[in-house]
């Protein structure tokens, strides 16, 4: 199959393509899901980012 001598190589060749497709489908299906809505969470992340920037800028 596909010029391979071993069926398991054909299988993994296809699995690689399917797993990339799975990632693509998942990403598209959840494109707009997962936004932080609570203000407290957003502020907490802003605080984390500020501290992280300070750490990185120090180096």
């Amino acid at each position: 199959m596909l010029g391979f001598a071993d069926g398991s190589i054909a299988l993994v060749f296809i699995l690689c393509i399917l797993s990339a497709v799975l990632c693509a489908v998942y990403g598209i299906a959840n494109w707009n899901k997962g936004m932080e809505t609570e203000k407290a969470q957003i502020l907490e992340e802003a605080d984390w980012q500020k501290k992280n920037d300070a750490i990185e800028n120090d180096q």
Binding site: C23, Y26, K33, G34
Partner: peptide
Amino acid sequence: NRELNRAVF
């Protein structure tokens, strides 16, 4: 999490 979802793509 939205960015992580999109990054999976």
